[in-house]
């Protein structure tokens, strides 16, 4: 009986896995094809492959620069978000002042306006403040993001406040409670946040493209878009580039996964 259930479980798990990764396997397969090979329904038994597309991408030293820019901006923004989203989320979740309520309203509000409308006035602001075409334009507005605040706030609300009260009775300072007690409890949410922020930044195209113009400060998604010629998509190189772009986020996920599932067992809520 048990064996049947285990088999069944793995069958379901595997079936879902196939559906989830098939399009990405397709992407990987295309990235290994010779340039110009047909990409529609190619022969499955054909095992020829070439790494040339990957080599081509790294041929120019520009790629290293783009990678550095993406990584630099990504890490800065992610670190900023972990700290700031946590602070803001905590104050919204645990303090019941009008200010906090209004704070939350602005957080949700900003989410509801399409980026395409905001981008023009934002561009004007950046030019006026001399931030246009600098790293600041890619970092400052994104150091704390509304989705992140909302996520962490919801998570904090699901944690019983008894832990903090116990610490308070023990005479711990508010800052100590914040960073020593609550923050560790939020590790799963902060790990999700880190992945999401890093990923969003890593793949962000429109804002970096509009807000920069020097080649030296452009990021990977912009570089990949520039690689495309007029009227034609170079599938093999695009898929290779996209494959490479997934790797850092995947690595981050594998590292963070432990934080997510470690959750409360390791954090040690004992009521």
């Amino acid at each position: 009986m048990r064996a049947v259930r285990t088999t069944l479980r793995y069958a379901v798990l595997l079936a879902v896995l196939v559906i989830m990764v098939f399009p990405l396997l397709w992407m990987f397969r295309v990235s290994l094809l010779e340039t110009g090979a047909s990409i529609s329904l190619f022969d499955v038994s054909n095992l020829d492959f070439t790494l040339q597309n990957y080599l081509d991408l790294f041929e120019s030293d520009r790629m290293a620069r783009f990678l550095f820019n993406s990584a630099f901006v990504g890490v800065a923004v992610t670190l900023g978000n972990i700290l700031f989203c946590f602070m803001v989320a905590y104050t919204i979740a645990r303090y019941r002042y009008i200010v906090n309520k209004m704070l939350f309203v602005t957080v949700i509000l900003i989410l509801m306006i399409p980026a395409h409308i905001i981008i023009i006035p934002l561009y004007v602001l950046m030019v006026r403040w001399g931030l246009y075409d600098t790293y600041w334009a890619l970092i400052l507005p994104w150091l704390v993001n509304p989705i992140g605040i909302f996520l962490v706030k919801q998570y904090i609300e699901s944690i019983p406040p008894s832990m903090e009260e116990a610490a308070r009775i023990d005479g711990a300072g508010e800052m100590a409670i914040l960073f020593r007690v609550v923050m560790p409890l939020c590790r799963p949410a902060l790990a999700v946040l880190a992945i999401q922020v890093f990923f969003t930044n890593w793949n962000s195209f429109l804002f970096p493209f509009i807000l920069t113009q020097r080649e030296g400060i452009r990021t990977i998604p912009v570089a990949l878009a520039l690689y495309q010629g007029h009227q034609a998509i170079d599938w093999q190189h695009l898929m290779a580039g996209s494959g490479i772009a997934v790797v850092p986020v995947l690595v981050l996920f594998v590292i963070m996964q432990r934080q997510i599932v470690a959750g409360i067992t390791a954090g040690g809520i004992k009521q």
Binding site: I120, Y123, F205, F209, Q213, A225, Q228, Q231
Partner: peptide, 23 residues
């Protein structure tokens, strides 16, 4: 000459936004 590359997919938007705000 300061050269800026535009993408075929979104380059026109960048031009329009820049000209639209006198930059």
């Amino acid at each position: 000459i300061e050269l800026t590359d535009l993408t075929w997919s979104n380059g026109h938007e960048k031009i329009v936004i820049a000209f639209g705000s006198q930059t």
